[in-house]
Amino acid sequence: MSGPARQPTRAWLITPALTAERFEKAKAAGADVALADLEDSVAPPHKAAARTTAERFLRTKGSGGPVLGLRVNSPVTADGVRDLAAITAYTHQPHLVLVPKVESARDIEIVAGVLDTSEHTPVIYALIETPRAIDRLPAIVTAGRLGGLLFGAADYAALTGCARTWEALLYARSAVANSAGTASVPAIDSPYFDVQDLDGLQQEAERARALGFQGKGAVHPRQVPVITRAFTPSDDEVAAAQAVAAASRETQAAVTTIGGQMVGPPLVAAARAVLDQAASAPPASRS
C-alpha cells in the first residue's frame, strides 16, 4: 500500500465525518493533513452513521493531495471500540489516526494493535488535552507506535478552568513541545477557533512555531493558507540556513563564525532542518 503524499505537518484541517458534502472541499483546501472527525463533532445518536460516512472521506481521486485520516473516539470508550472495529472493515484505510483523550502509552498501543496489518500501519497521533495527560507526557511518548502529538487547547482549558489565551496555555504548550522533542516526533498546535480573526491566527501560529511546533490545526478552509505560510520557512530564513550550512561544509570545523556570530553543531542542525522543511514545501507557500 502506498504511503502518504507528504509529511503530516503544517496545516491540519478537521471536518465532521457526517458532512459528506464538505469532504471534497476539505481535501482540496491545501492542507497537509485532512481529518474526518468521529468524536466531538458527532453527537452520540449519529456515531454509527458517521462511521459509515467516514469511509467515503478516505477515498482518493488520483495522486497527490493531503494525508487523509480520522479522529476516532477514545479507544477506552465503547464508541472508540466501535470506531476501530469499523475501520478494520474499510476498503480504504486511514493514513493517519488521531487518538483523543490520550493519558497513557497504552492508548496508542491499543489503536496500533487493532489497526496495524502486514499491508498498512497508520501514523498514530496522540491528542493531548487533559491535565493528567500533561503530567504523564514522559510516559506517553514512550509508545513505540507514536507518530506525534497534537495539543488540544479547548478541552485542556475547560478542565483546568484557565483562559484560552496564549499566556494561560503556555505551560501546557511548552510541555507538549518539549515531550515531542524528547521522542523526536512532531508536535502540532491546537486549532484557533475564531475563524474570522486571521491576524490572531497568524500571530498564534508564529508563536507556536517559535515554541517548537511543526504545524497547527484548522477548523475552516480559510485558515489553511495562513497556517501553511506560518510554518513554511521564508526566503530569508532559507538564505540564512544555506549560509550556515555552506560555512559548515567549507570549514569542516565543529565551530565557525558567520558575520561575527559563532555557529556550532546545534545551529548547523537547525539550519539543515530549515532546509529540509523548505525542500518539502511548495515554493508558493514561502514568503
Rank of each mutant, 00 (worst) to 15 (best):
A168L: 03
A5F: 03
I188N: 00
E39V: 09
D197Y: 07
T228S: 15
A187W: 02
R6Y: 04
M1W: 04
G260Q: 07
R222H: 11
L58K: 08
I124C: 04
A284G: 00
A281P: 03
E204T: 13
V123N: 00
D107T: 05
H46V: 05
L146E: 02
A29E: 10
H92G: 04
A278D: 04
V268T: 13
R6K: 14
V176G: 07
D199Q: 14
A31D: 09
T256Q: 07
A180Y: 06
A5T: 14
A126R: 02
F213H: 08
A230G: 11
G215D: 02
A26V: 02
F231T: 10
D276W: 00
E24H: 10
P138I: 06
A20V: 15
G217P: 04
G161N: 01
P186V: 01
G259A: 12
L146D: 04
E109T: 09
A177G: 08
E237G: 00
R106Q: 13
L146C: 00
T117P: 05
V123A: 07
A281L: 10
G80V: 10
V219C: 04
E206M: 13
G264K: 02
V102K: 03
L35C: 04
L18I: 12
S2K: 14
R59I: 15
R136Q: 14
A85R: 12
D79H: 11
A11F: 06
A247I: 11
S280P: 00
V185C: 05
K25N: 08
A218F: 05
A175W: 01
S190K: 02
A36E: 11
S280R: 15
L13T: 05
P45L: 04
P45I: 10
S287M: 00
A168W: 07
T160M: 08
P265Y: 01
L169P: 03
A86M: 12
A247S: 14
V274H: 06
A180S: 10
R272K: 15
F57A: 13
K25Y: 08
L211Q: 13
A153F: 05
L170T: 14
P94F: 03
V81N: 03
T117Q: 09
A218L: 01
G30W: 09
R209Y: 01
A50D: 10
F151E: 03
G113I: 03
V42Q: 01
V263W: 03
A20P: 03
S248A: 15
D197H: 10
S285K: 05
H95A: 15
R51M: 08
D194P: 09
S287I: 11
I128E: 01
A43E: 12
Q252P: 00
Q7L: 12
P100Q: 08
T165E: 10
G200A: 06
R132A: 14
I188L: 13
H46E: 14
S248C: 13
A183P: 05
A210K: 12
I227K: 01
L18H: 06
A187G: 04
A240Y: 09
P138Y: 06
P138C: 07
R164I: 13
E39Q: 13
E119C: 00
Y171E: 11
Y90H: 12
T256V: 13
A278F: 09
E119R: 14
H220P: 07
E204N: 13
R10W: 05
E55W: 09
G113D: 08
Y192N: 05
A245F: 00
H92E: 12
S184R: 13
I188C: 06
H220W: 02
P75T: 00
A163F: 10
A254N: 08
A28L: 11
